[in-house]
Amino acid sequence: MNTTETVAASNRPPQLRAARVRRQGVIKFVILFVTLAFLFVPLISMLVFTLRHPLSGRWSAAPWIAIFTGNGESLGADLTVLWQGLGASLGLCVVTVVLMLLLMVPTMVIVHIRSKALERAIEWIATLPLTIPAIVLVVGLGPIYRWLSSAVLDTNPIWLCFAYVVLVMPFAFRAIAVGLNSIDVKTLVEASRSLGASWPKVFFRVIIPNLWQSILSASFISIAVVLGEYTVASLLGRMNLQVALYQLGQSNSQISTAMSLLALLFGVVLLIALDLISEHIGRTRTGETKEGK
């Protein structure tokens, strides 16, 4: 709104201004209500499905009790496959995040300092998996994994980490790129080097502390992607959480749905933790800046 419009709005009668504020409030409420309904109605429906038996209509928390007690025999479900899939997915989260950070962070920092043209090329390569369907990736990865399983490694699900690094690369690249573009990396590097700091010290003592928020974002997004991945693991014949939920759903869909809700809740907790950690880092840096002054 320019100055003329601001003056005109201020000259309107109080009744018109109040009506406009009420109209804007109603519009905001409707938009917020529709958005929340779009997000929460499916989740509430899933929760009701886990508590209400679809045939008898009887309400019971038995599926949730079975998950937290680890005993689903009374409901005709073997939870062993669920724990196997959950353990495999948690292990994959750790290994995938470590490999992703070791690959992406040094590469992006070096390229950001040295060559903008090469940075654009790496951006194109990193975001390429977004344009390739997962089933097409599996077609290409299938022969490689068959050779790895028979000649080098084995069929342990943990080796899915190589494929998952490719899947999380676009999201990790964007998160780290935002952090690199928010600070003057070249000036920090030149100042540190001029003071006699070695390259490892510049990387770990200067650059990494300024990228903590981006590194956490990339890590949490990668964890969310790994926990929700199904296509690659299923078509390659490996076990993870989503494959376990699918298999468990064949015997008891209520327990499978309840575990899916818990996985979604875990993703929400990760986002809240990211926000709290980022806020804490921001307050810490602000405090250090004031103390330095």
Rank of each mutant, 00 (worst) to 15 (best):
L167N: 05
F162S: 04
P170I: 08
V165A: 07
A197R: 10
N181L: 09
I176C: 01
A191R: 06
V189G: 02
F173G: 05
V165R: 05
A163L: 10
I183T: 06
F162V: 01
I183G: 02
N181C: 08
M169A: 10
V185S: 12
C161Q: 03
N181M: 10
P170T: 00
V178C: 00
G179F: 05
A172I: 11
D184E: 12
V165T: 06
A163W: 02
E190D: 15
S198N: 06
K186M: 11
S182K: 15
G179S: 08
S182Q: 14
A175L: 00
P200G: 07
F162P: 04
K186S: 14
V189F: 11
V178Q: 14
I176R: 06
L180H: 06
I176M: 03
V178M: 09
A191N: 07
L188Q: 12
V165M: 13
K186D: 15
G179Y: 10
A191W: 04
A197Q: 09
V178P: 00
V189S: 13
R174E: 06
K186E: 13
A175K: 14
L195W: 09
V165H: 05
L195E: 01
A197K: 13
R193M: 14
S192N: 00
K186A: 13
S194K: 08
E190V: 14
S194G: 13
P200N: 11
P200T: 04
V185R: 09
V178E: 05
I176G: 03
P200V: 02
A191F: 03
A197E: 04
Y164K: 08
V168C: 06
I176F: 02
L180E: 05
S198W: 12
E190P: 07
V185I: 04
I183L: 12
F173S: 07
V189D: 06
L180W: 03
G179P: 04
L167G: 09
V166G: 05
E190M: 12
V189P: 02
